[in-house]
């Protein structure tokens, strides 16, 4: 996919069309949040530290932002942590996985985000696992939360993240023979020629003189 072509939609760069913006986008905080985290988050962190001796080694960052707790986990420890969260901390539901592609974060371009729910305790936390674009593998958690089966297929389909150990990682929304992974930032909106029964219709971006 070409990186310069953006199709018909969306300004390049900042989206500031008039030059009057002046405001600089604030980057998301990159450090860990210091204790106390507030609410039940301290309890969750304490419980996890007690139940999982390798906590400090496996969990790289603990972030509390806008009232939500995110645990950043090394990818090779994900399944271990997931199992303990499910069995010991009673996060019996995983609400799926969402991918995010940050092309500018060298070495951790692809991120998988898992929202967890404990119905027993009515608590929610989030796991985040990053991997580099050159090594797109993240272990699958389908053995722990079976309902993540389709969600992981969708994230594979959209971002090209390969979930190792998934029982049948195939495309789910796009056609089986599709090229590329549409939700990645280097994949254009539009810009794809339409093929239907032998007839080819040029991509929307090719049909207009303005781009």
């Amino acid at each position: 996919m070409s990186e310069t072509q953006q199709g018909m939609f969306g300004a390049r760069g900042t989206g500031d069309t008039s030059g009057y913006g002046g405001l600089v986008a604030t980057a998301a905080a990159t450090g860990s949040t210091e204790r106390p985290f507030g609410g039940y988050f301290d309890q969750v962190a304490d419980d996890l530290e007690r139940a999982y001796p390798d906590f400090a080694d496996a969990i790289t960052r603990v972030v509390v932002d806008r009232g939500e707790l995110t645990l950043h986990i090394k990818k090779d420890r994900l399944v271990e942590v997931a199992r303990i969260l499910r069995d010991k901390l009673l996060f019996e539901m995983c609400m799926g996985v969402s991918g995010v592609h940050y092309p500018e974060r060298t070495g951790s371009e692809l991120v998988a985000v898992y929202p967890l729910l404990s119905m027993t305790k009515n608590q929610r936390i989030r796991l985040e696992v990053a991997t580099s674009d050159s090594d797109r593998h993240i272990p699958s958690v389908v053995d722990v939360w079976g309902g993540n089966n389709w969600h992981e297929r969708e994230t594979f389909d959209m971002f090209g993240i390969i979930f190792d150990g998934h029982p049948g990682l195939t495309r789910i929304l796009m056609p089986d023979d599709w090229d590329g992974h549409p939700q990645r930032k280097d994949y254009p909106l539009g810009g794809i020629a339409v093929e239907y029964k032998g007839a080819t219709t040029p991509a929307p971006s090719e049909r207009r003189s303005y781009q």
């Binding site: 989206g15 998301a28 609400m95 969402s98 991918g99 309902g147 389709w150 969600h151 939700q183």
Partner: peptide, 28 residues
């Protein structure tokens, strides 16, 4: 449970929006 996972990079457009669709999940 219908949920939106929304990521912003500080801009005027969403950086990433993902919907946790109950139909999608429950159809499994």
């Amino acid at each position: 449970e219908l949920a939106a996972h929304v990521v912003s990079d500080g801009g005027t457009r969403p950086y990433r929006v993902h919907f946790r669709e109950p139909s999608f999940n429950n159809l499994q």
